[in-house]
Structures are given as C-alpha cells and as structure tokens.
Design a protein around this nucleic acid. Structure first.
Lengths: 215, 215
DNA sequence: TTAATATGTCACCACTTAGTAACAATTTGT
DNA sequence: ACAAATTGTTACTAAGTGGTGACATATTAA
C-alpha cells in the first residue's frame, strides 16, 4: 500500500521541498548561480542537505524545479492562447513589440531572471537545454501568428527577433556587470532605456510594414 | 645592490611568468573563466602555485597580466584610422555590416574571445570595465563616420547597433552553451548562420537607406 | 670558490565541497 | 497502542580550495 505523504507539524515533505526550492531563489538573488551548492542551499533552507538528494536526487533537478517555475517564457505558456486570440488582428506585431520591451524592463530590474539567463549561457548544461527547448515550443506558437504575413517574403522575422531578443538579453547583462555605456548608450539611465525601447518598436514596425506591402 | 633577475636554464623568473600567463589562456580556452583557480593554473603551467603569489601577488593580477598582454581590443585600435579612411564613401554603411558579420564569425569559432565576453558580463569586474571603456573609444571613432547621414534623423543608429551587436554576442554564447535553436533558428549550422548574417546586413541597409531619404 | 640571494618544490594548514551511512524522531495505518 | 514507514539530523568520508612556511638548489656577484 502507498502511504499518504507525511503532513505533520514537525515533519512535512511538501513543506520541506518548498523550502528547498525557495532557497534556490534566495541564493540566485543574493549570490548568483555560483552559490548554488548543496551545502549552501541546505543552509538557506534550514534543512539537512541529505534531503536534497532524497527528494530531488541531485542539485540539478532541484534547480530545474525552481527555474521552470520562474522562467519568463514558460510562464507565458498559460496565457499564450489568450495572447494569440488578442493579437490576431495585426498578425502579432504589437505582441512582438510588447514582449521584447517588457522583457527588457523585467531584465533590467529583476536580478533573479537576469542571473538565470546568465547561467544559461555560461556552461554546457543539460538542464538549461531543456528550459531552452520549452521556450522554443512557446515561441513557435507565437511565430505561427506572424507567419501568414511573412509567408512569401524573404524578410526573416525569426532572425530579426533572435537578434533583438539576444540584444535585449545582452544589454541587460552588460549594464549590470561591466556597466557604463555600450555603443555610446547607457541603458542604466532612463534616456538610454527609452532609446533602446523605441528602436525595438521601430524595427518591428518596419518589418511588418515592409511585409504587408503589396509585392 | 639589485641583482640581475635569474635567467638560468633551470630557474628563470621571466620564463615562469610567461608559463603562468599562458596557462591562463589555455584554461580560458578549454574550461572557461570558471577554471581560473590557483591550483589549476599552477597545474597547467607545470609550476608551483606558490610562484603565482610570489610573482603576481594574487590570481587577479595574473589574469589582468594575461588579458592586457593579449590586447584584443586595443589591437583593433591600430587599424581603425585605416578603416575609417576606406569607408568614408558610404558613411560607414559597409563597415557597420562587415564588423558585425565578421565579429559573429569570429565569436562562433573562437572559444577564447567568446569566453572573455562571457566573463565580462558575468561579474562586477574593474578590469573588464577598463576593457569595455577602451572599446567604447574605438566605437566612437566609427560612429563619427555615420553621424553626418543620421544627423537630423530620429533613427538611432547607435541603438540599432547596440541591439545587433548584443544580439551577435548573445547568439554566439547561447549556441555554445544551451545550444539548439533560438527563435527557431539554429546558428550551429550554416543555414542558421547565413540567416543571421543576411538579416544583419538587411537591417543596416534599411537604416542607411531610410536615413539618406530626402526628408 | 664561496656566500648571498633568487627561484622552485613540498608538505601542510584551515576551510569548503559533494555525497553517504547510521541513527533518531514523527507520522501513518492497523 | 504499536509496528512500519517516512522524515530529518548528525557525523563522517574523500577530495578540492586558497594560502603559507620550511627547505633545497640554481644562479649571481664577489
């Protein structure tokens, strides 16, 4: 027989798992992904590290549980159908702009998200490969929205988006590490931020207006 | 009296220092900057780690010696005036394209350069701040070339360039870490690479053609 | 040739790391 | 109430970290 999982006041499996997962977040926020060791996580959670192995097998799985819960794109997953419905009219033009600009804002302000991005590009990492793949699935749903208008054009909306998205990632990382200006723009102040956002919108706008031209 | 620094066959201060500095390069190439510990560097150099402290005081100084010795970005500095002269005709349009596309190729193939970029955005690092500043000086000379044509336009060539350059950095980093596709483009194969390069050229082309329109 | 000094190695320190075995205590089902 | 299973802690490996003092020896200057 399968016994009910322990749910007492003193011993409680689920509560402990949550403690561990939230410890991961706390560490990423304060120390960055380099602080994600078994000992440190257990210390933050106030619990024995043995339990990490018992409940998650290894640290990787624990972190995966955390990251999947936190990721910007995978979180959009729940809203994606709604978003698609709302953005059918302009073939996803507004959506493309908004997601990039929003993500830029989020990354500039949210240490946690930024450090996950950094972690993702830092090392050959099977976990991050999975996260990355999940994001792609999300993304393909959104690109399906834009395809009708770009169908027979040689303008490559995916390539444009990849470059802009990568640019957004990089700019936020750069500004929080080396800092200072980048291409003579300082995204640490509002004026710099606005220039980037306006340019993102302008490029997207241009792409779509070109694509909708009668050929 | 100051004695001549030892220059024998068995003991040789300068030779050892070079060994250590080159060990840093070898490690960055093979393991990335995370492998830059005292023990590891000494092992690569085939020398006692004690000497790192004796000759460089600490690991930071040793790494600084390496990066400055490599002179990545200041090396470009020598060619800058020549490049400007050659690209006056089209206000730097070709140059803007070429530098981005070339850099993309370089980053996709050169582990060392890519890992230094990664290091630069990974941590608050005074040394990397310096390198970053040097690059900005370089860049401003190139933007001087484009300014006449963009002068009274509200298109922001610096913001476009920042996004594209950041995009190039990010795409190369992503493909060597998580890998797989990004925005449904896989830059690990030639088809993906070409799509990115073509799009870079197209965006630059568009920017300049818009800027040169009579208003 | 000899003494002084620079160079290099080795063994060790205290600390941190990932991971495990043995054990104690709580919760569950009977 | 009591046994069985689950949850949690402690203490312990074995290996790796940055850093240092003691010592051996190659090189230099005399």
């Amino acid at each position: 027989m399968v016994r009910k999982t322990v749910d007492g006041q003193i011993r409680n499996k689920e509560r402990t798992k949550i403690k561990l997962i939230e410890a991961v977040g706390a560490i990423i926020r304060t120390e960055g992904y380099t602080g994600l060791g078994v000992n440190n996580i257990a210390k933050y959670a106030g619990v024995s590290k043995k339990l990490i192995y018992r409940y998650f097998e290894n640290v990787e799985n624990l972190i995966e549980a955390y990251v999947l819960n936190k990721d910007y794109w995978t979180n959009l997953n729940g809203k994606v159908n709604q978003l698609i419905e709302l953005n059918k009219d302009d073939y996803g033009k507004t959506l493309a702009s908004i997601t990039l600009v929003d993500l830029f804002d989020k990354l500039m302000n949210d240490d946690e998200t930024r450090k996950i991005i950094l972690w993702e590009i830092s090392e050959k990492n099977e976990l991050m490969k999975e996260v990355s793949t999940l994001r792609e699935i999300m993304g393909s749903k959104l690109f399906a929205l834009t395809d009708p208008i770009f169908k027979e054009k040689d303008d490559d909306i995916r390539a444009i988006y990849a470059l802009l998205l990568g640019g957004v990632y990089y700019l936020s990382l750069h500004s929080h590490a080396a800092g200072g200006s980048f291409c003579e723009i300082n995204v640490e102040n509002d004026e710099g931020k606005e220039r980037i956002k306006n340019t993102i919108e302008k490029v997207i706008e241009w792409m779509f207006s070109k694509a909708s031209e009668t050929s």
